[in-house]
Simulated scan of single mutants.
Amino acid sequence: MNILITGASSGFGKLIVAELLKAGHQVAGTVRDPKGRNAEAADLLRDLGAEIVDIDVTNDASVEAGVAAASDRLGGIDVLINNAGVGVYGLQENFSAADFQRVFDINVFGPQRLTRAVLPQMRERGEGLILNITSVLGRITLPFYGPYNATKWALEAVSENYRAELSQFGVDVAIIEPGGFPTEFHGNLILPTSTDRNEGYGEMADAPVAARQQMNEFLAANPQQNPSLVAEAVVSVVDAAPGTRPFRTEVDTVGMGDLVKPMNDLAATSTQALFTNFGMADMLKLNVTPKKAA
């Protein structure tokens, strides 16, 4: 299949690209500034066999141009993987409205821009897959990740709605929910632009730094939490036959995924019941022989 993935230069992205190529897919990966600061990462991906497109997920024109370029090089886009994202760390009160907007622009509005750009061709063909990388923290929360939690919860809701609204056009929607993994993601966190509220928190003001150190130590002590597991899960969902893909896939080996799975199972049961009560149950079933959109 022809696959476009955002955030391909590091973290899960570069691992996913490698696994997809190994599985025989054609892949275009988005890399910001591929001739400048990310030239080395872009070259590595090209050496693996990927196409490189420069897309700023926070810019409408960049997304439209980049998707058009990727579609032209690949001969169309069968799968979009919304992987690009950014994390945060700090007391939530210290994050300004502008800080929240920045995180939402990347983690929520970015996937919406990309999805809107690829959907017309998918609906026209009557098939396709939108795969959103969210997080177990899109289902539960931990302190000091406030804006990040909010964006991942929002992306889960965006995915829920697209799943229902696109199913009859043959366009599938799925979610991968990773736990915490040791990747470059943790070195590129957005911190609050201000710490002027710290004084009112007393000793609690030091808690974010201590908790972050504890998380780093926890991940170092659990090498089985290998980021390659996320890439393998993505390939498994992509390669599954339309109509058989799980909507949500938890990827975690240290207990968080085990806590989230029952919540996901209950959500699936409740959603099925709600849609059935409103006479919309068919919207939860992918039409594998759809009519092309008019």
Results as ranks from 00 to 15, higher is better:
115 T>W: 10
166 L>S: 01
17 V>R: 01
7 G>M: 11
240 A>Y: 03
104 F>H: 09
156 E>Y: 06
198 N>W: 14
79 V>C: 04
29 G>N: 08
184 E>Q: 13
273 A>V: 14
140 I>K: 10
121 Q>Y: 03
6 T>C: 04
202 G>Y: 10
226 N>M: 05
235 V>H: 03
28 A>K: 05
2 N>F: 05
266 L>K: 12
220 A>D: 11
208 P>M: 11
3 I>N: 00
110 G>H: 05
43 D>R: 13
142 L>K: 07
141 T>H: 04
12 F>K: 01
27 V>N: 00
121 Q>V: 01
287 N>G: 05
171 V>L: 06
253 T>I: 14
119 L>E: 00
9 S>E: 04
65 A>L: 12
212 R>A: 14
58 T>S: 10
40 E>Y: 06
257 G>W: 04
1 M>K: 05
271 T>Y: 02
91 L>V: 15
254 V>P: 00
230 V>N: 02
208 P>Q: 09
289 T>F: 11
27 V>C: 05
190 I>S: 04
204 M>R: 15
64 E>F: 04
75 G>P: 01
165 E>W: 08
62 S>D: 11
228 S>M: 15
278 F>S: 06
119 L>C: 03
57 V>N: 01
152 K>E: 05
292 K>A: 06
126 G>R: 00
181 F>T: 10
163 R>P: 00
169 F>T: 09
33 D>S: 12
77 I>K: 02
89 Y>C: 09
46 R>N: 07
224 Q>Y: 08
57 V>R: 01
48 L>Y: 08
279 G>S: 05
276 T>H: 05
210 A>M: 12
80 L>G: 02
227 P>I: 14
287 N>D: 13
200 G>K: 09
121 Q>A: 14
283 M>F: 14
74 L>S: 03
214 Q>I: 06
246 P>V: 15
204 M>D: 12
105 D>F: 12
196 D>P: 02
53 V>Y: 05
146 G>R: 06
181 F>L: 10
22 K>A: 15
89 Y>E: 08
43 D>C: 02
38 N>W: 03
19 E>K: 14
32 R>Q: 10
235 V>T: 09
63 V>F: 09
161 N>P: 00
277 N>D: 13
291 K>L: 05
112 Q>C: 13
171 V>W: 00
15 L>M: 13
75 G>Q: 08
181 F>K: 04
198 N>C: 10
64 E>D: 12
104 F>T: 09
107 N>Y: 06
200 G>N: 04
202 G>Q: 08
261 K>R: 15
133 I>H: 03
153 W>Y: 15
196 D>F: 12
290 P>A: 01
46 R>C: 09
256 M>I: 14
271 T>G: 11
192 P>H: 07
25 H>C: 08
57 V>M: 04
102 R>P: 00
198 N>I: 12
99 D>L: 12
21 L>I: 15
45 L>I: 07
60 D>R: 10
233 A>V: 10
115 T>D: 02
137 L>W: 08
132 N>Y: 13
136 V>D: 02
233 A>L: 11
200 G>I: 11
234 V>S: 03
267 A>E: 06
46 R>G: 02
